[in-house]
Design a protein around this nucleic acid. Sequence first.
DNA 1: TTGGTTGCAAATCTTTTGCAGCTTT
DNA 2: AAAGCTGCAAAAGATTTGCAACCAA
Lengths: 162, 162
Amino acid sequence: MQAARRRLEASGVRVTPQRLAVVEVLAAHPDRHFSALELYENARRAHPDLGLATVYRTLPLLEQAGVANRLNVGEEEDRFEFGLEKGHYHHHLICLGCGRIFEFKEDLLEPLERRIEAETGFRVVDHSLHFTGYCPECRAAGRDREDRRGPLQEGAPGRQEG
Amino acid sequence: MQAARRRLEASGVRVTPQRLAVVEVLAAHPDRHFSALELYENARRAHPDLGLATVYRTLPLLEQAGVANRLNVGEEEDRFEFGLEKGHYHHHLICLGCGRIFEFKEDLLEPLERRIEAETGFRVVDHSLHFTGYCPECRAAGRDREDRRGPLQEGAPGRQEG
DNA sequence: TTGGTTGCAAATCTTTTGCAGCTTT
DNA sequence: AAAGCTGCAAAAGATTTGCAACCAA
């Protein structure tokens, strides 16, 4: 998609085929949440000699440019999603049964942020919110027997990766 | 404090001096947020031959028992705080200037959780919310010049420790 | 007793960095 | 041409695991 290139150019960072390949993967799946490794594997299809280190060096740039969002969902590795334009906020629902990440559109934290600023003097720049629990499928499969957080299930269905 | 021992016993996990040492550190500073390493270093004062691996093996137990809360505040390592009784929720404010973590008492996420359950069928077990920004001190020191997330300041004042 | 625990060292895993050569502007 | 990028391999940092000895219930 040209959208990816335009987005990159608009962000001001230097456009290279490697960066473009990464952004194209993100842009092609705006609903998915990739680990750096997954991004590397997918981008490699368009640019076979891409290096993993380059992906790691690219991600903070994309993040700062608002082209990608970094998610800290409690797993060991960070995940990344395509950064939609400001205002299209959503929260993440992380399934403890299958590891998949779902989205819930809505952002009602603005009022809370303002209260925090007023009451504490802390200037809020950003926030991170996610919910853990069990998705409908895992509930149906009875995978929500034992509660409390813990390691994700063994045979989890690929975690997003199709 | 005997409180730590009672708390451990009540949780059902086997009580060992190592675990007790860790819980005592947590209980002695309910307002602090320790990394596993900091916990290890502090607990070592009461139990000098404690091993770091033991701390890492103990933390998930305490977490499951509700004796400790694991925090994922965007840093590379997880942090832990003493787990107060249910209902005493608070959110975390992470300063991008000095790395310190502040708390903000309040939990108005219950209604949102219920809405999510009703609208998506996802069963919410827990949530994680934190805000990033600049604390009053860092604002006063002009450390909130450049925005956007990025690595924490070089000479950050010890991050809680001290 | 006896299964759960522990310390140590080695192993994993994710992310970062040094460096020499290559590319975008 | 100059500054910024890239790939590779090595390094780093956090967390986990194998194992034989040890200890709480």
